[in-house]
Design a protein around this nucleic acid. Structure first.
Lengths: 186, 186
DNA sequence: TTTTGTTTGTACCGATTGGTACAACGATTG
DNA sequence: CAATCGTTGTACCAATCGGTACAAACAAAA
């Protein structure tokens, strides 16, 4: 018996493993163990090895946020996009049960390896939210601070709800954030 | 030549390494390399090996926060304690250049190993801040939400400022947090 | 059916992992 | 001085790490 994969099928599987175990905790044997994909296949699709795998996963995550979160914030109806962002974020992170891979990489030693991708992810998130807030009538310097506060708040809520093993903390944080963002828009 | 250590001298050295490299990234050879302490000494003071070392570091961090942050919040003048908390946090985390070890452990696979200590750290932080807010005249449910928001905000600010490699993000977040906490106290 | 080229499983590699064993060292005590 | 005891460096251990080599298994084209 022999299962045939495509690169696009493997990346989401890798993502879940990296998210759960971190970069250092993800060993090739663990990948094989959980997915059934052997080293032969892995190094065929990712000749650069583990680092290329993690890079592909980061790019995949990034492209999802780009189309699902950032783009609507930049171009769509601002009020609607902000509400959608919070709802999508809550669904994506499964109310805090799931971790932000990029955030985890930022804290890890791994950061140095992927610093460009990690920084890009957060810069674009803050910038997109900031532009939505400004279009909604928020003052520039206030929009910057609020956008940073919201993105940081989400990351912190992930840390906290994960530490307390309590999804209520995460959803509550998102509600508080929603009020703050709403208050500043006319 | 032979250097003689005590356990209390070693823990802070270990803390810095764990903080920088994470639990999985900290290998015994890296410890020896950075501190000059050999395996003989390490296993003499920490017979439980790497896990006991990390546990000792967590306990050390916890006791620092207990006396420097939590206790003043619970017993001292509330306004003063909250201002001091933000200042001490800024100094402790070196304006975001330094990471929160407990927060990093919460995101890591490591969490399962130290879940009790990690949860305890955050529970007591939130509870101490909450009690200070209530004593300052804040309503109970609002105090809970605000305390969680503040602690999560600090953790998120660490993630964000680290990702962007920008200490300004961290200090700005603390200032915003200070305003929020101040506004709710009469 | 044969050929071609991609995809896969498996055996292997040197390096490093966390951990153990133990003899030698240094200070303290007698 | 001799004996003791806490502390240390070093040599080891099996297991696992990321990575390589390569032949067998496959699908597609001829």
């Amino acid at each position: 018996m022999k299962t045939v994969y495509e690169r696009a099928d493997i990346v989401p599987l890798l993502a879940e493993i990296f998210r759960e175990l971190g970069y250092q905790g993800t060993s090739l044997s663990r990948i094989t163990e959980r997915t059934g994909i052997g080293k032969g296949s892995l190094y065929h699709f990712f000749p650069g090895g583990k680092e290329e795998m993690a890079g592909a996963v980061l790019a995949d995550v990034d492209s999802w946020f780009e189309q699902a979160i950032y783009r609507p914030l930049r171009h769509g109806d601002t009020r609607e996009a902000i509400v959608a962002m919070l709802a999508d974020v809550n669904a994506y992170f499964r109310s805090g049960r799931r971790i932000c891979l990029v955030g985890a990489f930022a804290l890890d030693e791994t950061r140095e390896r992927f610093s460009a991708a990690v920084a890009d992810y957060f810069i674009r998130w803050v910038a997109a939210l900031r532009s939505a807030l400004i279009r909604a009538g928020c003052a520039e310097e206030e929009a910057q601070a609020l956008a940073e506060e919201a993105v940081a708040g989400i990351q912190g809520a992930l840390v906290l709800s994960r530490a307390l093993d309590d999804t209520a903390v995460f959803t509550r944080s998102l509600q508080t954030l929603a009020k703050r963002l709403d208050a500043v828009m006319q």
